[in-house]
């Protein structure tokens, strides 16, 4: 290629028509409470590992809804299953079950 000194930038747009939500649908089957997340962020604010690992239950749910599986896998590895997020969730989501389910789906995908 001709060395122009610049190139096409990758787009950051999420095309919702093309997002693969298979993992999220599987998560909903295993933990239907995931659908009721309102993105308040209490889980991330209280998370023991968030500050060091980037773990955030909110972002795990949103990431799976938007097909950002690789980022979700990295976040899940930071979870210590301490359960503080379960205590603060105003919607009463069983976040422990949610995290374990997300990990199981991730493991089955072999990623």
């Amino acid at each position: 290629m001709i060395p122009f000194g610049f190139s096409l930038s990758p787009s950051s747009v999420t095309d919702l028509d093309k997002v693969d939500t298979r993992r999220y649908r599987e998560l909903l089957r295993l933990e239907p409470g995931a659908a009721t997340c309102i993105g308040c962020g209490s889980c991330s604010a209280t998370c023991t590992s968030s500050a060091w690992t980037g773990m955030s239950v909110r972002k795990v749910i949103l990431g799976l809804q938007r097909g950002r599986d690789v980022e979700v896998d990295a976040m899940l590895r930071g979870c210590m299953l301490c359960g503080k997020c379960t205590m603060v969730c105003p919607r009463g989501i069983n976040t422990r079950n949610l995290i374990l389910a997300a990990m199981r789906i991730s493991k089955e995908d072999g990623k």
């Binding site: 747009v13 999420t14 095309d15 919702l16 028509d17 993105g39 938007r66």
Partner: peptide, 12 residues
């Protein structure tokens, strides 16, 4: 914009 995700979205 999907503001919670910090990215623009488009959908048909």
């Amino acid at each position: 914009e999907d503001t919670l995700n910090g990215r623009p979205v488009k959908i048909k």
